[in-house]
Amino acid sequence: MTDGDGTIDAGVTREQIAATEALIRPHVRRTPVIGTDASDFGLAPTSLLFKLELLQHSGSFKARGAFANLLLRDVPAAGVVAASGGNHGAAVAYAARRLGKSATIFVPAISSPAKIDRIRDYGAELVIGGERYADALAASEAHAASTGAMTIHAYDQPETLMGQGTIGLELERDVSEAVDTLLVAVGGGGLIGGIASWFAGRTKVVAVEPEAAPTLHAALAAGRPVDAPAGGIAADSLAPRRIGRLAFAVAQAHVAPEVVLVSDDAIRQAQAALWSRLRIAAEPGGAAAFAALLTGGYGPEPGERVAVLVCGGNTEAVSLVA
Results as ranks from 00 to 15, higher is better:
A289T: 04
V259C: 13
A291L: 10
L261G: 09
D265W: 00
T295W: 00
V306M: 07
A266C: 05
F290D: 07
R277Y: 01
G296F: 02
P300M: 13
A273P: 01
V306E: 06
D265L: 04
A281S: 15
Y298M: 11
G297M: 11
V262H: 03
A307P: 06
I280E: 06
A272W: 02
R277T: 11
R279M: 05
E301V: 01
A291N: 02
Y298W: 13
A266Y: 03
Q271C: 15
I280R: 05
P300F: 05
P302K: 12
P300S: 11
A288W: 01
A282D: 04
A256S: 15
G296E: 08
V262G: 07
A307T: 02
R279V: 04
G296T: 01
V255D: 12
A307F: 01
V262E: 10
A288V: 13
V262T: 02
E304I: 00
G299K: 15
T295N: 14
V259F: 04
V259I: 03
G297V: 08
R305P: 00
L274G: 06
V255K: 06
Q271L: 09
R277A: 14
G299A: 15
R268M: 05
S276T: 14
T295F: 01
V308C: 11
V262S: 05
G297F: 05
R279E: 13
R277H: 14
